[in-house]
Design a protein around this nucleic acid. Structure first.
Lengths: 158, 158
DNA sequence: CCAATATTCTTGAGAAAGTCAACGATTATT
DNA sequence: AATAATCGTTGACTTTCTCAAGAATATTGG
């Protein structure tokens, strides 16, 4: 959870809203991420997942099965952390490693049937957490936000 | 720094862009935050600051001097982390603690002249980091993003 | 006023996450 | 064939997170 136990998205009168930092994009992103992952961890905890493990599981259950290297780049994590994450999921029978036929150095991480089933429920939980976190924004605003963030995070490709 | 040493914001062809996760707002925020703080830390390192210490310094040099409690809530950090952060800044002579006259339990964190001077340079560095991180977005898009993030992070109080 | 409760900062401990360098196995380059 | 590069893995280390408890100060209810 977090140090801010008020469930309300609005922490109340905050004198610091007038600060320069409150206009800093990086700060806003950092703060929203803290809120968001706190909310997501709360929702995912009953499923035995955290935001991190959920991200890996979700990608492993997706169509192009990712290699560990791809997971590291996509999630912006160190490869050694992917090892630990995949170990955890594999230990729970949610995922398994397959040597990439086209490059035997690489290992594809693919979801098991059980992993896929859990992933479906986890997606619902993650979606609920998003509602918790973005209560202040309407559907259209969320779509706009999504598009801008995607471009900022991955650059203008397509 | 980070595990992604490519300075380009666009890591190149990424097969996982078609994944469901790539449409997940929480994931996008988390990833952009990782990128953003990596960029900011790089820019702030020559000044002896990190994103965390910069945030505290910036608020301490702002107009309503914050208490440590307010810093914790605003930055979404545990109060004990604020202690460490302020200790560091105070040790460098950038900030000092003042007992709040209206509540002697609280301590106001206020920037010293030296802290304010460094803060000005740090703001420029942070701004440059933002350019690094949001190269893909134009000024109008950044303004839209800022407004949406601010509302999501703090609720609809204007 | 006084006792009980709450809040603020602080400390300390342990868990989790981030960072970095090295290694064996495999692939790519020359 | 030899050299260099890449991938997953391990291990060590630092930083960050999370929680519980304590001292000083404020607030509340009798």
């Amino acid at each position: 959870m977090a140090r801010n136990d008020s469930t309300a998205a609005t922490p109340g009168a905050n004198r610091l809203l007038v600060s320069d930092l409150a206009q800093d994009l990086s700060f806003l992103v950092a703060r929203l991420r803290s809120q968001g992952s706190a909310a997501a961890n709360t929702r995912l905890a009953p499923l035995g997942l955290k935001v991190r493990s959920y991200s890996v599981l979700s990608l492993a259950c997706g169509d192009p099965a990712p290699t560990q290297r791809e997971l590291a780049e996509f999630l912006w994590l160190d490869p050694s952390q992917i090892v630990a994450l995949v170990d955890g999921l594999e230990g729970g029978g949610l995922v398994h490693r397959e040597t990439d036929p086209s490059d035997r150095r690489s290992k594809l991480v693919v979801g098991t049937p059980r992993g896929r089933e859990l992933c479906a429920r986890a997606r619902a939980a993650a979606s609920a957490a998003e509602d918790d976190s973005l209560r202040a924004l309407g559907a259209a605003e969320r779509a706009t936000l999504r598009a801008l963030l995607a471009r900022a995070a991955f650059g203008p490709e397509d």
